[in-house]
Nucleic acid binder design. Structure first.
Lengths: 107, 107
DNA sequence: ATTACATATAGCCATACAGGTATGTATTGA
DNA sequence: TCAATACATACCTGTATGGCTATATGTAAT
């Protein structure tokens, strides 16, 4: 049972795949063909990466005739932000604990 | 030439390794032995993961006799925060562009 | 109907890597 | 000095997966 951060880290760990996602963030909706032109890999590979991104909720697809338009779903990144915040939070609270300890020792 | 987000995503993509890092964030400095007890994998595997985390700058080690204490280096997460912010920023600016366009069309 | 085009799927291959066991290297203690 | 402990390294193995080509599917155009 992979949790949200797990899926996100795994999905974004591949440079090619992350580059596709970044481009969708920067430039908005794009077709598979347009993405393939700059991806440096074959069209089937791009399709596969888009499938993984979609599975992770990071992109949406919209069919229009024989074209498929993909766009980034930014809210899917929230678990990542949340995870980072948690890590920072743990860090901070341990720091607070230390401060508390030092204060108590000071008395 | 892997950039910072690349290394971080790759390093944190493995659940076992990320769990080790999370534990160091939550509970602070720990020895390899202590980490191994709860990691669910053998000691050599834990050592290897710690090596990867260290390579990524996510942990520091401190030698004390025959013990090695590892601790999380939270600032190493910054490129991740930065990357997320960038993605959100692109999204936002494209949104602003759209708003601008609509405003111009409104006139 | 037929052809061209856009994308998805299937199947294959090579490589990366997480995990294991065995062993090496230091350091402590008897 | 010798045994025990703590960790790191070496080496092997199985599996996951990113890449490819070939092909299927579905849509537009002629």
């Amino acid at each position: 049972m992979p949790n949200a951060p797990d899926v996100l880290f795994k999905t974004l760990a591949d440079p090619t795949r992350r580059a596709i996602f970044e481009r969708l963030c920067r430039e908005g909706e794009k077709t598979v063909g347009a993405l393939t032109e700059q991806a440096g890999v074959s069209q089937p590979v791009v399709s596969k990466h888009l499938g993984v991104l979609k599975q992770a909720g990071l992109v949406r697809d919209r069919h229009e005739g024989r074209h498929t338009h993909y766009s980034a779903q930014l809210d899917a990144l929230f678990p990542l932000v949340d995870w980072t915040r948690q890590m920072a939070g743990f860090w901070q609270s341990r720091f607070d604990d230390l401060e508390d300890l030092l204060k108590r020792m000071d008395q």
